[in-house]
Design a protein around this nucleic acid. Sequence first.
DNA 1: CTTGACCCTGACGTTACGTCAGGGCTGATG
DNA 2: CATCAGCCCTGACGTAACGTCAGGGTCAAG
Lengths: 253, 253
Amino acid sequence: MKVRTAKLYQAHQFAEFAGVTVRTLHHYDRLGLLKPQHRSISGYRLYAESDLVRQEQIAVLKFLGLSLSQIRDLLKDETSLREILRRQQQVLVEKRSRLDRAIDAIKKAQKSLGVGRKPDWESFKQILKEIKMQNDTDWMKRYYSKEALAKLEKRKALWSPEMQQQVSKDWAALFKEIEASLDEDPAGPKAQSLAARWRELIHRFTGGDPEILKGLKAKSADRENWPADLKRYQIRPEILGFITKAMKPSGGL
Amino acid sequence: MKVRTAKLYQAHQFAEFAGVTVRTLHHYDRLGLLKPQHRSISGYRLYAESDLVRQEQIAVLKFLGLSLSQIRDLLKDETSLREILRRQQQVLVEKRSRLDRAIDAIKKAQKSLGVGRKPDWESFKQILKEIKMQNDTDWMKRYYSKEALAKLEKRKALWSPEMQQQVSKDWAALFKEIEASLDEDPAGPKAQSLAARWRELIHRFTGGDPEILKGLKAKSADRENWPADLKRYQIRPEILGFITKAMKPSGGL
DNA sequence: CTTGACCCTGACGTTACGTCAGGGCTGATG
DNA sequence: CATCAGCCCTGACGTAACGTCAGGGTCAAG
């Protein structure tokens, strides 16, 4: 008869075992992440051993840097664990390399501060620039081949600020027009003309080089994994979908 | 006559140069971190070159992981830069080592997942335990000597869960009593009795070992730099102040 | 005069809880 | 039995650094 009367713990006891605060338990409860097995008549949360197991799983995943919503989804369906781990590892590795660079930057800044007395912002800026550059390059390497990178460097030298400005204006204009044409037939003449302009702009970037184009495609396809500071350049999904359809025949972006 | 009419930029232009969004400029403006040199009659923000310099300084410090409020303070008084850099470096190094451990944990988890099919939470927990342990140990090393750590290990083995529970209860009770006696004379009999109990509890932890006591003192003194998950054990400053005074004669905590 | 492309402020959303505030339940004690 | 300590509850606001509307001006061009 004692079988059904497994031990139950009040919030603060459970919290102590679990190494969290009572408030955290409230939080998880509200999120539906960890609901206590029982409630007393007066509404007290009563936790069982099984809750402790769950709590420990949560703790593990939190340690790995997953968000509570990710954890919730994951615990609903554990089959995705493998995939999630892979992705999370990538995320963490990137975070770490950002930290590495920041630490590196501080070291250099300290050195440049060691001799002079006043902070030399100009040189700090320079340090940052280099380190960020390295950052960008590292990241670009994921998509562009070595030759493509070299070619890009050369082309970059040819781009004046005015041209850059012009290009970004052209893109903006194109986006706007596409946006206004979203309900048209992607195979129709309007869409085709837009697609042509799109290709033209792409061509201006690649210089018609197939290596660079390949890298650009790889990079675009992996849009969701772009670093935070480039997220601002995301293209709205509707637009992307439309232009993709419109360019189908010739094999899109 | 052209001297005073330096170029002014509207929000979006400035934002583009600076590599931030307009909203970010709003934000910085409100925080008083970067107020544009001018406003047009109609209230438009107008940024000057000097604002760009400032913005770049902000960007550098942000890259180093400083918070906006830290940045604000720092830019007010640059003399503290050196110190801040040192501290920030520590912070980053610790963050990195946490990341290292998490990455390590994922790798191990993946391995243990590689053979079996279902996630083996039990072994994950084990992995975490080890890695956290390593964490704690790393961190403790800052304060405790090698010998002290060894002795602590031995003493730990003697602590039953019941004793732990008892100890934490005793501390809680003591805190509460001190709290209620905060307005008494730290040299008076009540305070002295409290101080005696305090010493007794400390003694129960150190086992009277001076090595361990030394480490404990070092650790307590550095309270502000404790890792996040132990912050819950912070002692309220009033209590700390009171007991410190009360124990003056015999040399504090 | 009407657009289109800017601008402004204000307010809510995000993440994982911490920190009250206001009010109930429970066991021990006088 | 009243009281008090020590729990418990829900609800609401605060945190960091902006993103994202919403509602409403401004300005130059056509």
